[in-house]
Amino acid sequence: MTEDNTAPIIEFSNVAKRFGPLTVLDDFNFTVRKGEKVTLIGPSGSGKSTVLRILMTLEPFQDGRLTLSGMSYHEPNGKGPFKASERHLRQIRTHVGMVFQSFNLFPHMTVLRNVVEAPLRVLGIARAEAECRALQLLDMVGLADKKDFYPSQLSGGQQQRVAIARALAMRPRVLLFDEPTSALDPQLVGEVLSVIRGLAHEHDLTMLLVTHEMRFAREVSDRVCFFDKGRICEQGAPDEIFGAPREARTREFLSSVLA
């Protein structure tokens, strides 16, 4: 449920992303409104993860314009592949968080330190406050009792839940999920999805989710975007995309993954 008339928080206009001779995103246009929950689906190599990685400033892009809360990713006189200074990129990153396919927790830190470290060092929050908030988040993902464990002592599902708490501890406005359940054993997928489902009710949090869990996408998203060959081939409300897809490519893809 989103306010339809708010300004977009994310706006890609005519963005092109190439890896050498390979074009991943081509004349790409995409807008997301504040608080919207958008799921990106499509065959592998269609550019869905690249969209998230560009938003997280993990990948530069070549042409076009991208803004987040009105801030442009490229600076007018920006140099280097990102066409922006590190200072500017860090400014953008304060608004975005990301949950990775393979969790990427810091193995040398306990669960609590994983969640506390960035608020403490980057945001400069006092330790007592940061730990109190971290424990609330760990409690929310159901892992407060594991706070003194190391990631290697947790299951994949537990690690991913910690990773979600860690991303939320930075209070992002936009949270990106890059195939958060693809690296998990099937019986561990549910616990991670239920945490994400809980976040879907957070009114102010904008969520972009790349996933292959189609039933889940249908259930939590406000909008589903079907990607094909570096473009959004079709997008709409979940019931439209899953119930009555207009494009042949969408039907083909859905029948292959839902079969």
């Binding site: 860090r90 990775f100 193995p107 930075m170």
Partner: peptide
């Protein structure tokens, strides 16, 4: 690189990434 990307997503500076993420591992 996954560790470095996680550090970047959490907005660590280059020095913080070096001393808090890379070197301890």
């Amino acid at each position: 690189t996954q560790q470095l990307e996680a550090a970047r997503a959490l907005n660590f500076s280059r020095l913080q990434t070096l001393f808090r993420v890379s070197l301890p591992q």
